[in-house]
Amino acid sequence: MIGSTAWKIDESPVLKTRIIPCLDVKDGRVVKGVQFLELRDAGDPVEAAKAYDAAGADELCFLDITASHEARGTLLDVVSRTAEACFMPLTVGGGVRAVEDVRALLLAGADKVAINTAAVKDPDLVARAAEKFGAQCIVVAIDAKRVSGAAEPARWEIFTHGGRNPTGLDAIAFARTVAAKGAGELLVTSMDKDGTRSGYDLALTRAIADAVTVPVIASGGVGGLDDLVAGVAQGGASAVLAASIFHFGQHSVAEAKAHMAAAGLSMRLDA
């Protein structure tokens, strides 16, 4: 197997690396659908969540990309129906602007809530949410782009609105800030890599994982199973998030786990 002996991995022998399939949800429907299984309704997030639950995913992530804040009820309904059917941890993000949004998602059945743009605008929101609900359920989603030239030391900046809006904030410094405010986990997405299927931005993942004491989820750019291994072994991530390689049936979660275990990572194989 390619890459199976490439890295010497030294980590906690028992806490397992998590594989997190991520579904983009818009107006209560999965964007682009999930094709890896015969689902009755491939566009229904609940059906997809059940399939991933059965497939042994370690957690699940919904990112709501619904434009209007008014459609919030639809998302809450999806979350609540998912929590009824799946006995696995669920992170929900997208459009979270206030402590009340966090509360509504947690009450609907989310286990963790990801805050993105609102944390950039007001890092104290992270502190308020963590104090209210505990740091363990507050994830800050960091979207970063490399802004340094090829000859310069690597530097990444926080972008919002799907990578369109620069903020001037240094990604590493921002990661430190929100971790200090009480984020229990950071979901680090490389906007350069997202959608390219060329692998995570490992230098970005590593730089943030080394800068904070909370777990980091690597995200953006997975094209194959070795990318998942690299996210942990080289990027220092505690969990790996991927979308299309699972949704389109390129690989099953079980294959991903077997591949990562063969590479020396500690995986949960009993599911």
Binding site: D58, G184, V214, V216
Partner: peptide, 8 residues
């Protein structure tokens, strides 16, 4: 990492 987060 803290939190102790995940499967053990």
């Amino acid at each position: 990492k803290i939190p102790h987060m995940g499967w053990n």
